[in-house]
Design a protein around this nucleic acid. Sequence first.
DNA 1: CGCTAAACGAGACGGTACGTCTGGTCTTTAA
DNA 2: TTAAAGACCAGACGTACCGTCTCGTTTAGCG
Lengths: 203, 203, 203, 203
Amino acid sequence: MHSRTPAGRTGRPRSAAADAAILAATRQALVELGWSKLTLGDVATRAGVAKTTLYRRWSGKNELVVDAVAELFDELRLPDRGSLAADIEGVVLQFAAILARPEARSGLMAVVAEATRDDALRERIRASIVDRQKRLVLTGRTRAEARGELPPSKNPEESSRTVDLIFDMVAGAVVHRTLVSAEPADEEWVRSFTRVLLEGLRS
Amino acid sequence: MHSRTPAGRTGRPRSAAADAAILAATRQALVELGWSKLTLGDVATRAGVAKTTLYRRWSGKNELVVDAVAELFDELRLPDRGSLAADIEGVVLQFAAILARPEARSGLMAVVAEATRDDALRERIRASIVDRQKRLVLTGRTRAEARGELPPSKNPEESSRTVDLIFDMVAGAVVHRTLVSAEPADEEWVRSFTRVLLEGLRS
Amino acid sequence: MHSRTPAGRTGRPRSAAADAAILAATRQALVELGWSKLTLGDVATRAGVAKTTLYRRWSGKNELVVDAVAELFDELRLPDRGSLAADIEGVVLQFAAILARPEARSGLMAVVAEATRDDALRERIRASIVDRQKRLVLTGRTRAEARGELPPSKNPEESSRTVDLIFDMVAGAVVHRTLVSAEPADEEWVRSFTRVLLEGLRS
Amino acid sequence: MHSRTPAGRTGRPRSAAADAAILAATRQALVELGWSKLTLGDVATRAGVAKTTLYRRWSGKNELVVDAVAELFDELRLPDRGSLAADIEGVVLQFAAILARPEARSGLMAVVAEATRDDALRERIRASIVDRQKRLVLTGRTRAEARGELPPSKNPEESSRTVDLIFDMVAGAVVHRTLVSAEPADEEWVRSFTRVLLEGLRS
DNA sequence: CGCTAAACGAGACGGTACGTCTGGTCTTTAA
DNA sequence: TTAAAGACCAGACGTACCGTCTCGTTTAGCG
């Protein structure tokens, strides 16, 4: 995380409230203005905070927005609905619901775009957002193997490759449907998608 | 398109060379600087053109970059390799090759991010980039039905939904693999992906 | 604009009205916008003329405005009211009336300002505007000497110096009163000024 | 003045050095480029200051140049040479010396030209430049009355009118001689001028 | 309880890019 | 050939943010 427990002991401690206020203000500004018109000065004003305070915690717009958006994905949970298909449908719908929120839409794509030229930023995105999602895929796979819905992993390496493939297919399809095609990832679409994905994996 | 055949007949006509020079300069600047550090003044300088000339043709950075990136997708062709799987693998590899180019990577994602708040821009992206790709899916489907590799479409509406689903799955997976996971969409990955997709569709 | 010279064998006949239209448009623009916001493109539009046509006749803003303003001074006449004092009062009032017009106020001072760094422009101002006024001073002096109101010139050189002095005093005082002090050079002021000037010269 | 003692007390205080540097750079640029080619960006660069800093203190070119030129008139002093004629000659020579400097020549006339359409600017000129000069006339008149060289003022209103008249005559003649006629206001000319003025006033 | 030192708000600072406007020039078609 | 139209290059305009830097002012923990 960006916050650091004070190394030395003296001096005024950082305001814990400021962090929350800044992240909330960032999301609000993303909703109202979108990524490109969001300015750090405006975020600071909304948060009732000086620009200095903001820069003391985040090194720039990208880092701030990653953290602000990452919090949105905290609510992702793998439901246990009894079957792999139902579980996947559940989590995909959650994912789609998050991407339907305007603060996620422009914020997420913009930082991904920036990350194409900034390895540190990509790493931050991976740690804050992507891995959180990927863990759900892992859990789901394990649970499905236990249920006998998927054949057990033959070897770790291939297993890892498969998880990556599934993850790219799930996240990619939902993102593309939502942001590029600009159509809602509603229940009907999710059901069709899940069917194709699972049939493909089963065979 | 942005260019307009002169409505009236008088006056000096717009330089056709300027358009090409500007788009080429835009791609070059995308490679060297990335989206966020690309400035229109710099593009104009690279193109040997005044800023006014640039603004006369494009209303802003987003519109310019969409056109510059769109040209990259002109080279996409559906190969005829004899089987649906081979055809898909071929076109996905082409798509991945384009996304591997730095001028496409940051440019494409950035305009998609902007399009989340700008309907006109999204329409422009759809017309210039997305529809061009979707037509390949349609062609591929038709060809596969003729070969008997896929069951013939039952009704137009469901057919359209299926094409959309396939398109989101293909484009989404490749984009996510390439830009978010930041792993190459190489032949091995493409073969695995195609197998899952086709098996899922066949059943 | 609609004048057509039938005799010319090649090319379009030249518009005789263009000069007048441009100068009139220049004065109108001076009234409405002042010197600094007057643009040649705007003048051309007001005159119903292309910018090219304007540049074919004048080399720039300064030259155009000098000519436009110079026409205002064409109406200056030395009245013959029977006494030197009355004659001077008459011409000073005329001069003040011209300077009260907004197209003269900002136009004249602005070109004078430019002329401080541009000898060709200063020469143009002298020829078009200043000499026209100075001739009035000469005429007035000659007439006053004939009347016996002023002693006859002792030698040409001193005479020339005196004319220059009078001219600078008259023109300078009226301009300063009108433009810097921003007070009207009305009859009362002119009478006081003339009295001081003539008493000073007589002794 | 433009500078304001900070109303609120917080925030970084304005740099006092910046003001001086900007005004000096303005005068230097006036010398080298003249009014019309002087750009605020260039002034900022010369002063080693950002454009924003300049615009924070002055609202535009006119206001800046007024202040820059006004400082030139700070050195005007009414000498005490024992007689009214000598005093006037002294101050007129000082005035002429200032107007001989290129930073005063084009700068002063240009702002006067602009002031014909801008009351606020005219007021600024009056306060910063004109009143400073007029006070010298007042002092001179008082001193001359004490010496008995001029009859004492009959009433305040007429006295004020006379001061205004003298001021317009002195300043106007010197400015016209220097800038319009473009001849030096040397000692000989000043002596002639002073003689005419004083004889006119005495009678 | 007073000292110390960091964090705080405010806002000025040097920069960079914006998108617009104007100055002059050049290139087209029409008359 | 000249006119009107308007595209062209060049560069200044005034504004908006950037990220940094002073300021004077809290506000904690330590002594």
